[in-house]
């Protein structure tokens, strides 16, 4: 276990280095930040001074080494637009994204697992086929389209739920969160549903496949031979077995959920990291873009590590070893 963790850690460092190179040179290509930093009527001298202050007059490789050196100290530069450290800027937007992604994840399990188990149980019937067809829509409908549809139905037509912003927030453990206030939670429902739709389809498919496989196992037949009800067999015997792979996959997907909340946050004007990224791209705020990409990679790496550990904890066969009676 320890060896395994160390190896994963070493791999992560390589990924991080590779990402630094890709991110830095990639972003370096996307236009000249000087255009937005300096007013159009500045004198050539002023321009030169600004260039020197930000280090833009140096050769690329010097800039890169300086970037790496600073990055190692947790400094990814200052936002050109906000003036504040890019890392702390993103961190201040992060709670909004995290709570949205988390609620989205919960929604996708709450929707996907029951649908998938039922579809697996009725695999050859119309119920199962209908659910599977539905999940194809979940996969293929674009996020922004779903978001706007939900806004149209639930915010504009029915006026049940708000469609923009975070609503009331409350400070919990030093983080500003919406999820713990009634108003904030209402604001989260539509964007979280939008974010959940794709994952819910994924979970449905996973749960269906798992259920179909579990239903063929001897332990299900034995459970039936014990006279258990079909409901108990599905909810206890099957579900407990299929949750392990589902949680693994979902854990891995949490990273992409956070990273790709970009579109959803934009549609719902949700002030999270994703919206910050879009705004930063529009203003060519290079340090923020770089910091966002780097942080996202780190989030991915950390989540993968956690999932590996949780997985071993969840499966009793992996957890307890070598004490067969």
């Amino acid at each position: 276990m320890l060896v395994f963790l160390l190896r994963r850690l070493a791999q992560s460092v390589f990924v991080l280095i590779a990402m630094m190179i890709v991110v830095f040179f990639g972003v370096f290509m996307i236009g000249n930040p000087v255009d937005i930093l300096i007013s159009p009527d500045a004198t050539p001298l002023e321009i030169e001074e600004t260039m020197a202050r930000f280090g833009f007059d140096q050769p690329v490789h010097v800039q890169f080494l300086k970037f790496v050196g600073n990055a190692l100290q947790g400094d990814l530069g200052r936002s050109f637009v906000h003036g504040e450290s890019a890392v702390s800027l993103i961190l201040s937007y992060m709670p909004a994204t995290l709570e949205l992604a988390l609620l989205g994840l919960i929604f996708s399990v709450a929707i996907g697992v029951p649908l998938g188990v039922y579809a697996g149980y009725k695999a050859d019937r119309w119920q199962g086929r209908t659910i599977m067809t539905g999940s194809i829509f979940g996969f293929s409908l674009p996020n922004f389209w779903v978001g706007m549809l939900l806004i149209l139905i639930f915010a504009v037509e029915l006026r049940w739920l708000p469609s923009t912003g975070r609503g009331d927030t409350v400070e919990v453990l030093g983080l500003r969160l919406s999820i713990f206030t009634a108003d904030g939670f209402q604001h989260m429902i539509l964007p979280a549903l939008t974010l959940a739709l794709y994952k819910a389809s994924l979970v449905t498919r996973l749960a269906r496949a798992g259920t179909q496989e579990a239903l063929m196992q001897d332990y299900v037949k034995f459970a039936r031979a014990k006279g258990l009800s079909e409901t108990r067999i599905l909810v206890v015997h099957v579900l407990k077995n299929i949750m392990i792979p589902i949680i693994t996959v979902l854990g891995l997907e949490l990273g992409s959920m956070i990273a790709f909340a970009v579109v959803t946050e934009t549609v719902f004007a949700w002030p999270g990291m994703g919206k910050l990224l879009i705004d930063s791209i529009l203003t060519l705020d290079r340090p923020v873009i770089v910091a966002y990409l780097m942080l996202t990679v780190i989030i991915f790496i950390v989540i993968n590590l956690i999932v590996d550990v949780v997985y071993t904890l969840l499966d009793p066969r992996v957890r307890v070893k070598g004490d067969a009676a």
Binding site: D218, Y219, F222, A223, A225, H237, K240, N241, I244, R317
Partner: peptide, 14 residues
């Protein structure tokens, strides 16, 4: 009923 393969008849996660 008792089944043939004792390795498969009990639910591994319960």
């Amino acid at each position: 009923m008792i089944f043939q393969d004792p390795m498969m008849t009990l639910n591994p996660v319960l």
